[in-house]
Structures are given as structure tokens and as C-alpha cells.
Design a protein around this nucleic acid. Structure first.
Lengths: 261, 261
DNA sequence: GCAAATTTGTTCGTATGTATT
DNA sequence: CAATACATACGAACAAATTTG
């Protein structure tokens, strides 16, 4: 009796799922049936199911039953892309998605003028409270919420001529290219920082994530560097961890063909 | 009454935590106290706390109380490193860690001969069931379990002269460099694939993760390519998501100084 | 080192609400 | 509307872990 009963039941069910006895998409026995099968109270059975839910193995639907979750064919994003001022990051990912036979869409751009928070000011080497332009966009693949992105630009870029940053529309052919034209800033490099955390309320709502916060999100910070070594933008993108994967290519890498690994 | 009571209580507690009223490391009111404060049964209070636990906000310790979790100063790993056969990936990360004033240690190497699973065979372009050498190692920082790594090499590399791959010790100055010497394979590129998933039992034990699986792990697949475009290794590394972060540098990026962002 | 007090963990029973078919 | 299945909520008892005296 080392292990509490609800964990034993969870383990047995996990075995039945992983062995394929209860395949993805199939319904588990109802709580009443499990009470009989394992001679436990309904609360204990529910504790077992909750454990499997937190682990992402099953999903309960009120009025229907509890079902084994089906693996999602993940969206793949390549983080080591082209640098040049001539390429739009948006275009790169759009091309990548279209290649996979999926359809990307994006929301309108929401532009705001903000004071730099401590974190943003620190990353962009500004005074806390410095004026910023933030451009926010939501992105979908096949209608499924895919990512939320916000880019912060120092207000000084506007003064240096990049007035279109204030436009609440997409900037063609790309914001990075536009900055090159408008004020001579060329992106010669960027640094990404990848972490995983639990979603906030906003993100849970947008991505339709379960309220218990069991699905984490990727948070990727991208800092862009100009030819002068200046940090001219900070882009933060959030992706739900249950349907995204990232690729990094270093050196000479043959093109990816199928859905390798 | 749109929101159930246990969520309302959880929301209130979240507010008290995020406002700083209950700072990181501090103890929440006991379950009995919360019963009084919010006029709910103990089970309802416990449901509220469970929600915050799944979200990673608090942590309950039997016999002590429930505490606000303290943020961990994360380990940072750079994924875009040096390629050359002259550099050991292990050395790179060791240097990076030492620079942060931390102490890395590694376990012995466990060497096994295995048949390629379907996934591994697919990635390395081998027949399923082909013979493989797997080299497994566990790594720690300041004594904390940090990552588990397994690298798979096609057995053909042994026949081509890389017999040291069978040695159950670290290969100096590095396995990639050794493959260059022993059979002329130079790594000209690699591809990483990053995903997040729930840990298996092994990983939960090694990383001392909570049994409910609320802390996910990063899983990074790295495929190495030789000068002939051959996929000569597959390295899979698993890191707990609650104490790791990854960096990617593209183009010209100034060196990182402090603990930026 | 032991015993008591405190606090969370597990398990049961029961009742009622809500979502779906 | 009825039946089914999960969701919420209360009460109660005992177990296990930890701290304190």
C-alpha cells in the first residue's frame, strides 16, 4: 500500500492507454464503471483521472465522458532564418506554413504608445519609462490560434524617420526592411531566448487553453541588433506548447523533406 | 455565481500573491484559516490550492504548509554553438556554465548496443532495427539534476574505425572531434528540434519533479550532418522546463554581459 | 529520542449543479 | 424532457509528514 489508491488506478489506466487498449480518441470507462472496476469511491476515481488530465493524457468532457487525447500534428517554426533587411520574417513563416499545406491568417495590427517596463527597458538598453511603440498581432493557422506577438520599438526610431511604425496595418514588405529604408537601420543579427511558463488569463482565453493552466506556453524573446550594435527592437512571441515545435539549423543542413522525427 | 467558488478563491489568492501581499517563499494561510476566511469547506479550499499548484504558483509541503514558489535563477544554454570538429559541445556548455559561477558535473557514460527504434531509424535514415551505439549521460549544475542526454550513432561508424564510441567514458577532447580523427567524419551542420512534453517516470525521478506531472520537460533532438550530407548522430537531451532557458544567436550578436532579460 | 501539535494527504459518503445526447 | 456523465461542494475520518516542546 505504499502508493495511494488513486495513483495506482491512474497507473493502471495509463498502462491501458499506452498499450493501445484504449487508443487515442477513445472513451475511458465512465466514473461509475471505474468505481466498480477498481472498487473505489467516485472521488478517488476522479482523483486518478485528474492526475492523467494534468499529465495531458486524457481530457474530460462534461456530459460525454473522458477521452484519450489525440496527438496534434504540430506547427513547426524555424528560428534560424534569413537575416537580411530584404526578408520579412512574416513572409518566411508564411512560406513555411504554406509549404505544409496549411493556411495562415493574421489579425489586424494593434499599435500602442507605452512607457518601457523595467524588463523591456533593460533589454533595449533604455531608461525605464522611455517611450515605446508596441505593435501587436495575433496569428492563426487553419483558423487555430497559433501565436501572439508584440514588438517594441524605441520611440527614437520615429524621430529618425520610421513614421510608418505608427500605422495600424502590416508594413510591406516587412518592418525590418522598412527600418532599413526609413532610417538606415539594418538588422545584422538577433538573439532569441526561449522559455516555457504557464499562460496568463489573456493567453488562456485567446488560445482556448484549459483553465487549470496545465498547458504551458513557449515565450520567445527576440532582440534585433543593427549594424551599429544597437538593440533596435524586442519581439516577444507566445505559442501554446501543445501544438508547436521549433527548429534551429546551424551550419550546412540539407533541406527538410518530410515530417522527419 | 458564474464562477465556481474554488476558482474564485484561487483568483483571490492569486491576486494576493501577485500584488506582493504574500511574497515568494512566504506561507499561505493554512487550509483551516482559508476555510474561515472564505467560508468554504476544506475540500473546496483544497481545490483552489490545487489549481494554483498546477499553475506553478504555490507548492504544498505536507506537515509544513503551502508556500508561494520562488523563481529559480534559470540555467541558460546556447543552442547555436561552434560547429567545428575542433570543439566539444560539452566543453562549450561547461565554459558557459563556469562563466556564470556555477559548477557542472556529469555522470559516467552508459554505453548500450541497441536496435534502432522506428523514430531513430527514420531520423538517421537507417533500416528499422539497425544496430546502434547509444551513449547516455546525466548532467548536473551545482549538484542539481540539469539534463539527461542520449546520443545514437550508427554501428557502421565502429566498422569505419570509431571504436572508442564503445568506451564507457568521456571521449576527449570530444566525440565529434574523435569521429573526425577516427573515420574522417566532420560535422558541417546540425539541426535542433525543440518540443515540450510531460516527463516520463524516469525523468520525474531523476529531476525530482512532482509526481503530478505539472512540470514539463524540454526535449531537444539534434541531428548532426557530415561533409557528405550524412546524418551520423542523433542526440536527444531532456531538460526540466522549470529551470532552463535556451539562447539562439543568428548573425552578428554582441556578447551577452549580465543576466539580460 | 519521544510525544504532542500542526498541517497537508487520502478516502469515503452524499447531494446537487451543469453539459450533452 | 429524460437519461447520462462529469463538475462542484459539503462533511467526516484517518494517515503521513514535519515541527516543536
Amino acid at each position: 500500500m505504499a502508493e495511494p489508491m488513486y495513483r495506482q488506478i491512474a497507473e493502471i489506466l495509463r498502462g491501458r492507454i499506452e498499450s493501445g487498449e484504449i487508443p487515442p480518441g477513445a472513451q475511458l470507462p465512465t466514473e461509475i464503471e471505474l468505481m466498480d472496476q477498481y472498487n473505489a469511491s467516485r472521488n478517488t476515481v476522479r482523483d486518478a483521472i485528474k492526475l492523467l488530465t494534468t499529465r495531458g493524457l486524457v481530457e474530460a468532457r462534461a456530459g460525454q465522458g473522458t477521452f484519450v487525447v489525440e496527438k496534434i500534428n504540430p506547427f513547426v517554426t524555424t528560428l534560424t532564418g534569413e537575416l537580411g533587411a530584404n526578408v520579412n520574417e512574416s513572409q518566411v513563416y508564411v512560406a513555411e506554413i504554406l509549404k505544409g499545406g496549411r493556411t495562415p491568417t493574421v489579425s489586424e495590427v494593434r499599435v500602442e504608445i507605452q512607457q518601457a517596463s523595467e524588463v523591456v527597458a533593460d533589454v533595449l538598453r533604455l531608461e525605464p519609462g522611455a517611450q515605446l511603440v508596441s505593435r501587436h498581432q495575433q496569428r492563426f493557422i487553419d483558423g487555430i490560434p497559433w501565436s501572439m506577438q508584440t514588438t517594441f520599438y524605441p520611440m527614437s526610431l520615429i524621430e529618425r524617420g520610421a513614421t510608418k511604425l505608427l500605422q495600424a496595418t502590416n508594413i510591406h514588405p516587412g518592418t525590418v526592411a522598412y527600418l532599413g529604408e526609413a532610417c538606415g537601420i539594418k538588422q545584422v543579427g538577433y538573439r532569441d531566448s526561449i522559455a516555457v511558463r504557464t499562460p496568463d488569463e489573456n493567453e488562456m482565453r485567446f488560445f482556448k487553453l484549459p483553465a487549470d493552466g496545465r498547458v504551458p506556453v513557449f515565450e520567445i524573446f527576440r532582440v534585433g541588433y543593427s549594424q551599429d550594435g544597437e538593440r533596435f527592437r524586442l519581439t516577444t512571441t507566445v505559442y501554446p506548447a501543445d501544438r508547436n515545435r521549433f527548429l534551429i539549423k546551424v551550419g550546412e543542413v540539407p533541406p527538410r523533406d518530410v515530417a522527419a522525427e
